[in-house]
Design a protein around this nucleic acid. Structure first.
Length: 300
DNA sequence: CACTTGACCTGTCCGC
DNA sequence: TGCGGACAGGTCAAGT
């Protein structure tokens, strides 16, 4: 069986559902494997990969693969953890044996690896590889003692996981009180308010809740927060169920494409009809991001 | 302090 | 056809 993971090309940015899809794939594919070699391109891709890191990385066995917000954590038997942020164009691609048929969709989607976007290559004892590819070089991979992971700046400030069973609408609304005078879209994208929301699911959930992205946080009613909470969780759960978002190049561990974009209702659908009222969807700029709304359903 | 904007990058697309 | 510039968006630093 061949194994490849998570390919995002242009326009396929990993948010919580995509990172979770990668996590599930890696969890299935790399636990128990032993790292025997590491190659990286620059210190930017692997900021703390100086010489002494090798001792804690090589001969280490993968014991777990976790996720927090959009960050992946690969736990090792050496009590160290690889922390990975895919940022905009990062991919983690696991390539196992070579019994991968030429007709398999991922062959044409990914091609031969490593390629010029490969930043870090981990080689396992069985000869398989995990490639960290990142066209735009925003992503990174770090090695830290597992016990220190919760102490990095990002982990200390990041907000709660919105899909946790015990995450209530009351807590959801309360988190936004820290950004009362900004618009709701900027607040949704703020990782210290809620973890894991990016541009796609911000637009999709705001459309579902019938809230204009430029509404000030302090102007939202409890009923609107309730709708936004429900829509955000529904849309993210649906996206995980569909294997994440992609236009045509994303695939998961089984070589299947992410199918959420087939279900997207406004994101990248400017010029099309709103599925609720038929009004033409428009694109605007909010919080420095391309933003898609139905001007009839979502009003200031 | 609260909030907004710019920088980081490279590949793609659009207009001239 | 080639070329310049806008655009894509997660996060942090710098600016207002």
């Amino acid at each position: 069986m061949s194994r490849r993971l998570a390919n995002w090309k242009e326009g396929c940015v990993p948010e919580l559902p995509e990172v979770e899809t990668v996590r599930r794939g890696l969890h299935e594919l790399i636990i128990g494997r032993v790292i025997v070699a590491q190659v990286h391109d620059t210190d930017k891709s692997f900021p703390n990969a100086e010489a002494d890191v090798t001792a804690f990385l090589l001969q280490a066995t993968v014991t777990d693969v976790r996720r927090r917000a959009k960050v992946l954590m690969i736990d090792l038997s050496t009590d160290y953890t690889l922390i990975i942020h895919l940022k905009m164009t990062g991919q983690l691609v696991y390539v196992g044996d070579t019994r991968f048929g030429a007709g398999h969709p991922s062959v044409s989607l990914i091609g031969q690896l490593p390629d010029k976007s490969t930043r870090v290559t981990l080689t396992f004892a069985d000869g398989s590889h995990l490639y960290f590819n990142d066209q735009r070089k925003f992503g990174w991979m770090k090695l830290l003692p597992t016990l220190e992971v919760p102490n990095i700046d990002f982990m200390k400030k990041v907000g709660p996981e919105p899909l946790e069973a015990d995450f209530t609408v009351q807590e959801f609304q309360e988190r936004f009180t820290r950004r009362p005078n900004t618009n709701i879209k900027a607040a949704l994208l703020d990782q210290s308010v809620i973890a894991g929301v990016g541009n796609i699911y911000a637009d999709e959930s705001l459309w579902g809740a019938k809230i204009h992205p430029q509404r000030l946080v302090k102007s939202l009613t409890p009923a609107e927060f309730k709708r936004l909470y429900t829509e955000l969780r529904e849309v993210m759960n649906l996206a995980i169920d569909k294997g994440g978002s992609s236009n045509h190049t994303y695939i998961n561990a089984s070589g299947e494409k992410g199918r959420y974009m087939d279900f997207a209702r406004v994101f990248r659908r400017e010029g099309q009809a709103c599925p609720r009222c038929g009004t033409e969807i428009i694109k605007m700029r909010v919080a420095g991001r391309g933003t898609h709304i139905c001007p009839h359903c979502q009003r200031l």
